[in-house]
Write a protein that binds this DNA or RNA. Structure first.
Lengths: 266, 266
DNA sequence: CGTCTCCTTGATGATTCTCAATGCGCGTGG
DNA sequence: CCACGCGCATTGAGAATCATCAAGGAGACG
């Protein structure tokens, strides 16, 4: 763990490389390009809107550290989280020409992003030298879209308990792909209000739903961490199934983790 | 109306041309290419699964006539409709290589599709001669994605009444873009069960929600047709707003309509 | 130590679901 | 032509899920 902090710069962009490499084996040039994402970083505080509204800059970025959300607020205060943006996820990777409405993206934790203009240029060049990169990014886009479809099913046809289990499994799967899990444990640096906005539930009901999952010994949750105690049961009750398998089996070696906010020990 | 039947072949692919032309002015070559979609047609009965499961053929198609849905069935019989596929909408326009899971697409009415392989080839060629076509299809893809996001907000944060109003407005907008509306009226060739699966509600509650909209004189519904009596009020109560405007204002000239199934007069 | 945010709990009510039954229109076969 | 079945819309009653309101507690932080 000690040396992780020393090599933090490498580790951060390594997240993006892991994700893409798990989707399509990257060649050396592609790996180098992806790792260079960390060269030009941007830091954001927690709770900051980094895209949408007035800020028109749609520079492509990759999240290297921290959590963010794409959300849609309603006029009367209701808020729906469309999807979570985790380390390795892209923002505006496909260009936003003309009058395309920009998504409203807000950080949930302090966040670091890498500049993905070089990556976008490589993808748009159509150069066959970037074949592996193109394939990986195409698959990454599939994953993003499939997650949207999962979100629709979750909100439309699952009960509160099922929704929660389903979302936790999705987050686990996505974090596992970028090496941010420890066994069945992962950092969940979000409040119950955020979970409520993602799942279309009230805060109170999220609280009670989590209690039920803990009471049934399906998960354990404390200090901003979750552990999935019975993955199979969780998958069963939530009709969850993996979108795309890893190329080389589950990633287990851990990287640095998003540690925020400070949470009391239950 | 009489001459519409005579020119039905033209009228059908005209739907696709209208949609794309409303998104980006098509040049003559692009128009011709889009209109040629009607040259090779495929007919499907109502209630037929035309993609997903065993049928692996992912030939790109454009719906020329009829309604279909992209749905996700759960093991216990629950079913969530991801999105409606209306005339002018594309199926599998972006290729499905490798292990990408195919969407499960089922017709709701007798449906006619046109072969879009030539269209796909033109898009993938990257030839700048197809610039207007590429732009229009890109915008069409935005619309599709934006509709998914709208569906998420609908299911996550809107009440039953709001969901119904919101969906009717979306359908109106999409049908209007392809010229399949008559003033504020349009054909709604689907059962209340389909509406329920799209809105994440029970059939019974869909029925009562529609009754309330009718009682409040917001809509009129009979014989498979809807009329939106107060569009502004509907937009207000459902937080609806148009995704992308038409280039040349609302399309009013009508084309042929999907007329199915036979419905009793209230 | 006071305040703030977040989690937790109880009580109550609204929304929505489920179950069950009825009716209506339409096609089908006698 | 009519009886029947079938799919779909409708209605009522009761129950489950989930939301809302209100209050309290437990850290974190200045």
């Amino acid at each position: 763990m000690a040396n992780v902090r020393n090599r933090e710069i490498d580790v951060s962009s390594e997240v993006a490389r892991r994700k893409l490499d798990s989707l399509a084996k990257l060649d050396a040039a592609a790996s180098a390009l992806v790792l260079s994402l960390g060269d030009q970083r941007q830091k954001y505080d927690a709770g900051v809107q980094i895209l949408g509204d007035r800020s028109s800059s749609c520079r492509p970025q990759i999240i290297l550290q921290g959590w963010a959300v794409h959300a849609r607020p309603l006029a009367d205060g209701r808020n729906q989280i469309i999807r979570f943006l985790l380390p390795g996820d892209a923002i505006c990777l496909d260009g936003a020409e003309d009058g395309r409405p920009l998504p409203s993206i807000t950080t949930l934790t302090p966040t670091i992003t890498g500049d993905a203009r070089a990556l976008r240029a490589a993808l748009e060049s159509g150069d066959s030298a970037h074949a592996s990169l193109t394939a990986a990014c195409a698959r990454s886009a599939w994953l993003d879209e499939a997650a949207l479809l999962d979100q629709i099913v979750r909100l439309g046809r699952l009960t509160a308990l099922e929704r929660m289990a389903h979302l936790l499994l999705e987050l686990y799967s996505r974090l596992n792909r970028v090496g941010l899990t420890h066994g069945r444990r992962f950092s969940l640096p979000i409040t119950q209000e955020v979970l409520a906005d993602a799942l279309g539930l009230s805060i109170v009901h999220v609280n009670r739903t989590l209690q039920q999952l803990r009471r049934d010994r399906l998960i354990e949750m404390r200090a901003g961490y979750v552990e999935l105690l019975q993955v199979d049961t969780l998958k069963l009750i939530s009709s969850y199934h993996e979108i795309l398998p890893h190329q080389d089996g589950p990633v287990e070696q851990q990287l640095g983790e998003t540690r925020w906010p400070p949470r009391r020990a239950s």
